[in-house]
C-alpha cells in the first residue's frame, strides 16, 4: 500500500515536471516566429544589385545613388584629394581598419584599400562608399568638414577624402559596399 502511494507520488511528480517543461519549451519555440517575422523578408533580401556607369562623372564630381534603400556615394576624386588621403599616416587614423567589404575584415585603412573592388582592382579616382555616418546613420555632406571630405551635421563627425573618420563621435570609417568593375568605367554594387 505505502509503496504504491510512493510510486503514485513520484509518477505524478514526473508528469508534473514533464508537462511543465514541455509547456515552457513549447512556449519558447512558439515565440520564435513572432520574433523572426520582424527580420528582413524574402523580397527585401532579394533586392537586386545596382549597375552604375562612371563615364559621365567629371573630376571633382560626386553623385549619390540608392542601393538596398541606402545612399551610396560615388565620387571622382581630384588629384589633390587623392594626394592628401595617401599622405595621411595610418597612425593618425581614429579607425585603422579599411571597412571595405571586398577585403579581409582586418585590412588596414590605406587609401588603396579604400578603393579596391572585390577582385582587387584599384582605380584610385573613384571612391564608392555607403553614405551613412557610422555614428547614428545620418547622411554626411560632401566636400565639407575639417578634412574636406565629408561632414556629418547631426553630431559633428568629420571624414577625410578617403571617407575615413578623423574627428567626432562616429566610431568607424564609412563602409565600402561590395562592388566590382565590370569594365573600366562600369561598376556593379551588391
Amino acid at each position: 500500500m505505502s509503496t504504491s502511494t510512493m510510486q503514485d507520488v513520484s509518477r505524478r511528480d514526473f508528469l508534473y515536471v514533464a508537462t511543465g517543461a514541455v509547456g515552457a519549451v513549447g512556449t519558447g519555440l512558439a515565440l520564435w516566429p513572432f520574433i523572426d517575422q520582424m527580420n528582413p523578408d524574402a523580397s527585401v533580401l532579394a533586392l537586386a544589385s545596382t549597375e552604375f556607369d562612371l563615364a559621365p562623372l567629371q573630376e571633382g564630381q560626386g553623385v549619390t545613388i540608392k542601393w538596398r534603400g541606402k545612399p551610396v556615394f560615388i565620387r571622382y576624386r581630384t588629384q589633390e584629394e587623392i594626394k592628401k588621403a595617401k599622405e595621411t599616416p595610418l597612425a593618425e587614423l581614429k579607425d585603422p581598419i579599411a571597412r571595405n567589404l571586398n577585403l579581409p575584415a582586418d585590412a588596414p585603412a590605406t587609401d588603396e584599400n579604400r578603393v579596391k573592388d572585390a577582385e582587387g582592382k584599384v582605380n584610385e579616382k573613384y571612391l564608392v562608399q555607403i553614405g551613412i555616418c557610422t555614428h547614428l546613420g545620418c547622411v554626411p555632406l560632401g566636400e565639407a568638414g575639417d578634412y574636406n571630405g565629408w561632414f556629418c551635421p547631426c553630431h559633428g563627425s568629420h571624414y577625410d577624402t578617403a571617407g575615413r573618420i578623423r574627428f567626432g563621435p562616429a566610431p568607424r570609417n564609412l563602409d565600402i559596399p561590395p562592388f566590382k568593375y565590370i569594365s573600366d568605367t562600369k561598376i556593379v554594387i551588391g
Partner: peptide, 16 residues
C-alpha cells in the same frame, strides 16, 4: 536590422 525589417528605415519599419 531586425528593428528595421530591412537594411534601412523603410516601409516595413513604418508599418511596425
Amino acid at each position: 536590422q531586425w528593428l528595421w525589417g530591412g537594411f534601412s528605415v523603410d516601409n516595413p519599419t513604418l508599418q511596425r
